[in-house]
Amino acid sequence: MPTTYRSYVAVGDSFTEGMCDDLMPDGHYRGWADRVAAALADELAEAPGADAFRYANLAVRGKLIGQIHDEQLAVAAGMGADLVTLAGGLNDVLRPGCDIAEVERLLGRCAAGLRAGGATVVMFTSTDPSRRMAGGARLLPAILRMKAFVHELGQDDGIAVVDLFSAPCFDDRRLWAEDRLHLSPEGHRRVAAAVLEALGRPAGFDWRAPLPPAAPRGRAEKLGADARWIGSHLGPWIGRRLTGRSSGDGRPPKRPELLPYR
Rank of each mutant, 00 (worst) to 15 (best):
S126T: 15
R138Y: 13
A137E: 14
G158A: 12
L140M: 11
R180I: 06
L140Y: 06
R174S: 10
S126W: 12
D179H: 00
R180Q: 11
Q155S: 15
V191E: 00
R173Y: 14
P185K: 02
A167H: 08
Q155A: 15
V195D: 02
M133W: 14
C169M: 12
V161P: 03
G136D: 05
R174M: 10
R190M: 01
M133C: 14
D163K: 02
R180T: 07
L140S: 08
V161T: 08
P168V: 04
S130M: 09
A137R: 13
I143W: 02
A194I: 00
V150C: 13
V195M: 04
A177N: 07
A134I: 14
G187D: 01
P129G: 04
I143S: 06
R190Y: 01
C169P: 10
R174G: 10
S184H: 01
R189H: 09
W176I: 01
M133K: 15
D179F: 00
P129A: 03
Q155E: 15
P141E: 07
I143D: 04
K147I: 10
S166T: 09
A177T: 05
P141G: 07
G136W: 01
D171A: 07
L140R: 07
D163P: 07
L183R: 00
F149V: 11
S130Y: 08
G135R: 03
R190Q: 05
A192N: 03
R138L: 14
P185C: 04
H151S: 14
L175C: 07
I143Y: 04
D163G: 08
R132D: 06
G187C: 03
F149C: 09
D157R: 15
A142S: 13
S184L: 01
I143P: 06
A160S: 13
A142T: 12
A192L: 01
D156M: 08
R173N: 14
D128H: 05
R132S: 07
H188R: 03
L164I: 02
L181T: 12
I143H: 08
L164C: 04
V161W: 06
D156H: 10
F149L: 09
R132V: 03
R138I: 15
S184W: 00
R131H: 11
L153E: 08
P168S: 05
D171I: 03
R138Q: 15
D157N: 15
D179M: 00
L181S: 13
L144V: 13
P168C: 08
D171P: 05
L153A: 09
H182P: 05
D128G: 09
G136Q: 05
A194W: 00
H182R: 03
V191F: 00
R190H: 04
S130Q: 11
A177I: 00
A167F: 04
D163W: 06
A134R: 14
W176S: 01
A192G: 06
D156Y: 05
F149M: 10
A148P: 09
C169K: 11
R138D: 15
L140P: 06
I143L: 07
P185E: 03
